[in-house]
Design a binder for these strands. Structure first.
Length: 476
DNA sequence: ATGTAC
């Protein structure tokens, strides 16, 4: 049991000390319950990450951590390119730039006036979702390359959304340095009819109500009030991101064999940031980020059209958009020195503190909005990043509830029909594309998101602003 | 997460 070697270093911080090939310690943000459920495999994966060349500080795990492909989901690791730092496909994940965005509406819960069923039908009809879902757009190769270079900005130019939206997306809606020429033809082919689709698994579109406010001032600044209706979209880069992951993880394994790098786990294959393969993956991954940002932007436009048809609502303003599967070049202060680092966040959200120059002026005084999606039928949270988070976690926080049960296990344990009945009892209207898919997302297959958020808040990585509850859920 | 196996 690797868990036995964990030492508590602070109230909710546990550390696995440096040993063998580790360059830095591993650190887990958790309470007793989360620790009790922690898989040994997670610690093993963290130890592997902590042993990678050029890692800085510590290999980190958020309270929603669970084991993933090579690198834990809920993991954060920063690398110094000048110190031999690496980039790993497994450290980003297959669904590149999977993320959440939240839109404000001018409606309060009572304004829905029992039109939840109609709203659910219209959203379900308008936004394609489900495994292998194909959209209403078919892109030429040339157009695809523009999209991969320009992200959400491409979508806005095409009439999906408004210029103001870009201000409220990380990196202003465009990952710079994207290289569509480093993305395989196969990846582009898979995506040509998938723009503006939600996908499956834990991806969703939810109409939610602000149920609780923890910080009135910050909520006001974000334009959130009690009982207000908002819309959250959780999806990613679909087939394109997955194919980029597949292509480059294979290349990274081959490169290791060729160059004689030691791989503790072939799923955690990597390339030096300063290498041809490292540059290629970075360029392709950034193209994947742009794909996901454009995807959420297109869906946003269709959500707005539905609200306009049903409620006559004007444009629903974008509160913010976060991506939780990325590797980004950022400046961080380490032991009093500013360093350029490549921060992997896999199932972890960027959570920059107040004053950070990357933040839109509107939010700069309070910190970056951090959007946390719950499991199906449970709460979501709006948080903000903190100064302490900049010091403890390279400005990062959790991303959601985190699985405690595999998809297969959940499929065997729960029935989609029963889930819908129990959600209906809570007054939640749900539309899904697959019974089996619904069972995989049963709330009991996940940790309690409230506890996960509480640990992040207690450690000081974030401050709580508001809690949202679903009213209408559309699943893939 | 994923053209739910290459």
């Amino acid at each position: 049991m690797l868990k036995a070697k964990l030492k508590q270093v602070d109230k909710y911080i546990y550390e696995y000390p440096v040993e063998a090939l580790m360059q830095v310690p591993a650190r887990i943000f958790a309470d007793q319950d989360i620790l009790a459920d922690l898989e040994d495999k997670v610690i093993h994966q963290l130890v592997n990450v902590a042993s990678l060349p050029g890692i800085v500080g510590a290999a980190l795990a958020m309270p929603d951590v669970h084991s993933g492909y090579g690198f834990p989901i809920g993991g954060v690791a920063a690398f110094d390119p000048g110190a031999g730092g690496i980039i790993s496909g497994g450290g980003v994940g297959f669904d590149i730039a999977c993320g959440v965005r939240t839109l404000r509406t001018p409606l309060s819960l009572k304004d829905l006036k029992a039109r939840e069923e109609l709203l659910a039908d219209e959203l379900f009809r308008t936004i394609p979702a489900g495994v292998g879902s194909r959209g209403k757009l078919k892109l030429s190769l040339k157009e695809m390359d523009k999209l991969l270079s320009e992200g959400a900005s491409w979508a806005v130019k095409k009439g999906f959304g408004v210029e103001e939206d870009l201000e409220f997306i990380e990196e202003k809606g465009v990952a710079q340095g994207a290289r569509p020429d480093f993305v395989s033809a196969k990846a582009k082919q898979r995506q040509e009819a998938e723009m503006g689709t939600l996908g499956s698994g834990n991806h969703y579109l939810e109409v939610q109500v602000v149920k609780e406010i923890y910080d009135v001032k910050k909520a006001q600044l974000m334009g959130l009030g009690l009982n207000q209706v908002v819309v959250s979209i959780h999806c990613g880069s679909r087939g394109l991101g997955h194919q980029i992951g597949t292509d480059y993880m294979r290349e990274m394994v081959l490169a290791a064999k060729k160059s004689g790098y030691f791989l503790a786990d072939r799923e955690l294959a990597f390339a030096p940031i300063y290498s041809k393969l490292g540059e290629q993956y970075l360029g392709a991954m950034r193209a994947g980020i742009n794909c996901a940002l454009a995807n959420r932007q297109i869906i946003t436009h269709w959500v707005r059209e539905v609200f306009k048809r049903i409620f006559g609502s004007e444009v629903l303003p974008l509160l913010y958009d976060v991506s939780h599967n990325t590797c980004r070049e950022e400046v961080h202060e380490v032991k009093g020195k500013k360093r350029v680092l490549f921060v992997h966040r896999k199932g972890a959200t960027r959570a920059f503190g107040p004053g950070h120059p990357e933040l839109p002026l509107k939010y700069r005084p309070i910190g970056q909005p951090v959007l946390i999606g719950g499991s199906m039928g449970t709460s979501s949270y709006v948080l903000v990043g903190t100064k302490k988070g900049m010091e403890l976690s390279f400005g990062s926080a959790c991303h959601g509830a985190g699985r405690v049960m595999s998809r297969n296990q959940a499929k065997k344990s729960f029935s989609g029909r029963e889930l819908i009945a129990s959600l209906a009892q809570k007054g939640i209207v749900i539309r899904g594309h697959s019974w089996r898919g619904l069972a995989e997302e049963a709330p009991l297959a996940y940790k309690d998101v409230t506890r996960v958020v509480e640990v992040c808040a207690q450690v000081g990585l974030v401050e709580k602003v508001a809690r949202l509850e679903p009213v209408v859920v559309v699943k893939g």
